[in-house]
Design a protein around this nucleic acid. Structure first.
Length: 585
RNA sequence: GACCCCGUAGCUCAGCUGGAUAGAGCAGCAGCCUUCUAAGCUGCGGGUCGCAGGUUCGAAUCCUGCCGGGGUCGCCA
């Protein structure tokens, strides 16, 4: 039950009635009309800009139209008061019964309160896609958590979501990986390999791969020429890296539906890439030509030559993009064209890419490919996650990548836990840089948002543990509590909580629509705050405590409120992928 | 040189796709509490929304141009 949607529909009906009665002209554009929470709760429960937006079309002024609308709105069920304010806002005060209906909806719908109707429209969310050449770092972690929470909120809103990971297992870097692994293989055979040469991956994480190669192949690879051992070392190394990455993702509670290998696009005779380029060629998007050299300092080895290009400038990009390298192999971008074509062929018309901020330059060309392949009905949405600064007590954590000895995502998860990582990654807009303080995120105090929100949930659980002792035999489940009379929940703090609960469906909806899961995190913080506030009031005013042994009726009503809060907190935390603990020990 | 992101209270950040007197948490100040619902409570002060134009009934929000901070930009992946 979304009261904002509900009253928006009521409002539309009121307007239609006025049109039918000839008091408003037909053909008004209602698309900009919104029903939202007023800026100040003292103004009422709902506010609409209808009069201001429609005044011009109705050939009147906002205040006059507001008067007309408000007169009609008084007759709408659940409306207890209507007031015109400011430049033409209409503020609605709702009858208390409406919030009781919201409570009942929360209690009976449980986990499904706020869930959008399944629309069956598929959306592909590609996130993480870290190269299989080493462990993930904290920046990958942000994209991983963001993409996962985004997928969750889209699914909650009713979308049919596919979570996808693109494995960059083709090209030169995996050959480097293979050679690095081969070195570790020789090491595992007992040879002295000395320093890891420049240009190879130095990290210890390849030692297990070397050991595996030694265990499976003994010393048989050593005598072979590189052309023979390299594919073997490569496959074993990639498999090892992906296992490690998937394990780290699992530690964050992240599981993709599809792991898509870039290598499968190359295939025999150019495979899918050739086919995709052929298709683009037929539509006139491919030609042989030259690209201008990059501005600024000209690269040393820049060669101006004719090559195979994608006419990206026809579909919104700044420059045409090369599809083939001088050595005759396809560019990374060419594989991306084929991959996007593959997604299109699987029926997706909405593609979301979650990328790191360092891929900002990639946005336009991806969207260009989308347009070239799918035309206007293809929507390519690229969301960039800005950098993460890792701190400890306010001091930057040193990260030297040179030795391969940088702070990995796994180390951070192991130190502070999955919940802290996930919540803090989501407690910021994706396009703002994020300070992640290893010390602060594990503090058990109200200054730590993770703790603050989880603690609110734990307190709810604690109330029920106590209620079971004080009121043995009392019903504690949603279905039963829902039928109770909630009219005695009228303290300011209680009403504030009811208002917050009523906003949840709207927040989730907006979060999905705007691709901003952080809105859910901030909402939960506010709901937790309202709940803690009421809890604290109970310290000074015993009559406001949830459990009053001598007033069973009031206690039951409050248990309904607490269960509703608990339910919404749990629901929101589930979207974020953060645990909702019973207690905080 | 071009492109992307950011710029809101002393600090860290929200601001619900253009609404009303711009909000929260820290820090600061002033009280209360020292526990009964463990990891305190209540209140107060604090803003030229980077700057300058523009769009309109209305701009922190949209457009243009500057300023400042960060990032990216070759056949790498």
């Amino acid at each position: 039950m979304n009261i904002f949607d509900l009253y928006q529909r009521h409002l539309s009906a009121v307007i239609e009635d006025l049109v039918a009665a000839g008091r408003l002209p037909a053909g008004l554009d209602l698309s900009r009309v919104v029903v939202e929470p007023p800026r100040d709760a003292a103004m009422g429960d709902l506010a609409t800009n209808a009069a201001m937006v429609l005044a011009k079309g109705a050939k009147t002024n906002p205040r006059a139209l507001a008067e007309l609308l408000s007169e009609a709105l008084t007759a709408v069920p659940g409306v207890a008061g209507v007031a015109v304010a400011g430049p033409g806002f209409i503020n609605l005060t709702l009858a208390p019964g409406v919030y009781r209906d919201v409570m009942r909806a929360v209690l009976t719908d449980g986990k499904d309160f706020g869930r959008g109707a399944a629309d069956g429209v598929p959306v592909n969310v590609e996130y993480v896609s870290a190269n299989p050449t080493g462990p993930m770092h904290v920046g990958h972690g942000r994209g991983a958590v963001f993409g996962d929470a985004l997928a969750n909120v889209l699914a909650f809103a009713g979308r049919q979501v596919t979570r996808e990971y693109y494995i960059n297992d083709a090209g030169g870097q995996v050959d480097v990986l293979a050679r690095s692994a081969f070195l570790r293989y020789r090491e595992a055979l007992g040879q002295d390999i000395g320093e890891i040469p420049e240009g190879l991956y130095p990290g210890d994480y390849l030692k297990p791969v070397g050991a595996e190669l030694a265990a499976r192949f003994g010393d048989t690879l050593e005598a072979k020429p590189e052309a023979e051992w390299l594919p073997i070392a490569r496959d074993v190394a990639i498999a090892g890296m992906m296992a490690m990455i998937r394990d780290d993702l699992a530690a964050l509670g992240i599981h993709h539906d599809v792991f898509f290998s870039e290598r499968t696009l190359h295939g025999a005779n150019g495979g899918a890439i050739k086919a995709a380029i052929d298709a683009l060629t037929q539509r006139g998007f491919v030609y042989r030509g030259r690209v201008p050299p990059p501005k600024g300092q000209l690269p040393e080895d820049w060669e101006d030559r004719e090559q195979l290009l994608f006419r990206a400038t026809d579909v919104g990009d700044d420059i045409d993009r090369p599809l083939m390298k001088s050595n005759g192999s396809y560019t990374y971008f060419a594989a991306d064209v084929a991959y996007l074509e593959n997604k299109h062929a699987r029926g997706f018309r909405e593609l979301i890419y979650v990328l790191g901020a360092d891929h900002g330059g990639y946005v336009k060309r991806l969207q260009a490919v989308g347009r070239a392949i799918g035309g206007k009905e293809m929507e390519v949405i690229v969301l960039l996650c800005q950098l993460v600064r890792l701190l400890r007590d306010g001091e930057p954590v040193k990260m030297s990548k040179r030795s391969g000895d940088f702070v990995t995502l796994r180390e951070v998860i192991d130190e502070v836990g999955r919940d802290a990582v996930r919540f803090m990654m989501l407690f910021r807009k994706n396009d703002a840089t994020l300070d992640f303080d290893l010390a602060k995120v594990v503090e058990q105090s109200k200054d730590n948002p993770v703790f603050y929100v989880q603690y609110a949930h734990a307190r709810c659980a604690s109330v029920f543990r106590q209620a079971a002792e004080v009121l043995p035999g009392a019903s504690m489940v949603g279905e039963a509590l829902a039928s109770h009379d909630f009219s005695r929940l009228n303290d300011d703090s209680e009403v504030e909580i009811l208002r917050r609960l009523a906003q949840y469906p709207r927040v989730v909806q907006a979060s999905a629509l705007s691709h901003e899961p952080h809105r859910v995190a901030f909402y939960l913080y506010e709901l937790a705050s309202a709940f803690h506030s009421l809890w604290n009031k109970g310290k000074d005013s015993p009559q406001l405590r949830f459990i009053n042994a001598d007033d069973r009726d009031l206690t039951t009503a409050r248990l309904g409120l607490v269960l509703a809060v608990r339910s919404v907190l749990a629901s929101g935390l589930a979207i974020l992928g953060v645990a909702a603990p019973e207690e905080m020990r």
